[in-house]
Write a protein that binds this DNA or RNA. Sequence first.
DNA 1: ACGCAATTGACAATCATTGTCATCTGAGTT
DNA 2: AACTCAGATGACAATGATTGTCAATTGCGT
Lengths: 138, 138
Amino acid sequence: MTTANSQARGRSTRQRTAVSSLLDEVEDFRSAQDLHDLLKQRGESVGLTTVYRTLQALADAGEVDVLRTQDGEAVYRRCSQGHHHHLVCRACGRTVEVEGPAVERWAGRIASEHGFTDVSHELEIFGTCGPCTLAARG
Amino acid sequence: MTTANSQARGRSTRQRTAVSSLLDEVEDFRSAQDLHDLLKQRGESVGLTTVYRTLQALADAGEVDVLRTQDGEAVYRRCSQGHHHHLVCRACGRTVEVEGPAVERWAGRIASEHGFTDVSHELEIFGTCGPCTLAARG
DNA sequence: ACGCAATTGACAATCATTGTCATCTGAGTT
DNA sequence: AACTCAGATGACAATGATTGTCAATTGCGT
Ligand SMILES: [Zn+2]
Ligand SMILES: [Zn+2]
Ligand SMILES: [Zn+2]
Ligand SMILES: [Zn+2]
């Protein structure tokens, strides 16, 4: 019989461990390619295809958040579990998780008022963080 | 001298007119490829490259809104001028423009609380519209 | 140690988007 | 109306992220 606790997470491999623990250390949103390069630098080389698949699996499992940069590239970040949004610095990528219960309610109400079902939403706030604001002033 | 009123909009060509007036008629978010196909159907054929360039110009001029589908494809729609958000059907693209003054205030407050400046935000609500919900039930 | 299904990764394939560049054309000028 | 030429077009190639393929590898239960 299977050891019951590994919640449909598949086998434990060197590659998955490497990707997962890298995500624990990096705190900004990063592309699959970025993460792949970082792994190579650290000598924990993992095939690019595997990086993509692992990230996808983690995203499906809700363990990482995915969003898209302005040019459509997917970027990943390990976030806290519950539903939340992001305040992201355009200059350096610094990210703060934020919550807005009122926004959640508002979105749900708007959607149902218009007869939409199976509702979800995406909300990101972009700006220039304190340090970057200072840096930009010289 | 130039006729002064054409606000840096470039020349008036058959192709640009075709794309622009197509956008007036279509009310959902559509990809460049979709719009290109629609034009072909209508006998107003326009090169795909030109469709892309025209959409980009319109987007830069703030005359169309752009957002990305879940798989990263850019979709375009002629919207009203002011700041607003969208309620979009995942299945058919049907779109409703929505406003949320409270959300605007919330986003600004959150950002300044964290020392961010030059703030903007993106907010889209996704769901299945009434007709598509019915269709999905058979 | 054994056996096999899950996993990996080099490589090819896909697909939206952008770059190239020879050709065409809008719109002033004569 | 004919002339000019910078801006515009479009067929085609190139890019770049992501996904598909499949033979070789490996985790893990036996
Ligand atoms: Zn910053
Ligand atoms: Zn939310
Ligand atoms: Zn619909
Ligand atoms: Zn807003």
